[in-house]
């Protein structure tokens, strides 16, 4: 199972480091990463491997959400399937 993490908000120092730290602790590998600034809004998207995490999906989502709140950003994780379902045949 793979997940998509999206970080949306104002750019600042340490965003990738903060998210990566959580992923390292949870034993989650980053498969791909991209970042852009669209209309002054910073967007980072990570594709991650969720096949062997040491946290439940719920716990991971909460950790990311809490970190987002702390940094004034929106950080969410969703299973990759929802994007594939909508955009790929």
């Amino acid at each position: 199972m793979r997940g998509i993490i999206t970080v949306i908000g104002k750019d600042r120092v340490g965003i990738i480091a903060a998210v990566s730290n959580i992923l390292v602790e949870a034993n989650i590998n980053i498969l791909d990463i991209t970042q852009t600034t669209l209309q002054d809004i910073f967007t980072m998207i990570m594709l991650v491997d969720l096949s062997n995490p040491n946290l439940t999906f719920d716990q991971l989502a909460k950790k990311l959400d809490d970190k987002g709140e702390e940094m004034g950003l929106s950080i969410r994780i969703q299973r990759e399937d929802i994007f594939n379902a909508m955009h790929k045949i």
Binding site: I4, T6, I8, D32, I33, T34, T36, L38, T43, I45, L47, R76, I82, F83, M86, H87
Partner: peptide
């Protein structure tokens, strides 16, 4: 492969 436009469209 990450398609930023598609992912952001879904999230929006």
């Amino acid at each position: 492969m990450i398609n930023t436009y598609e992912i952001l469209e879904t999230i929006k």
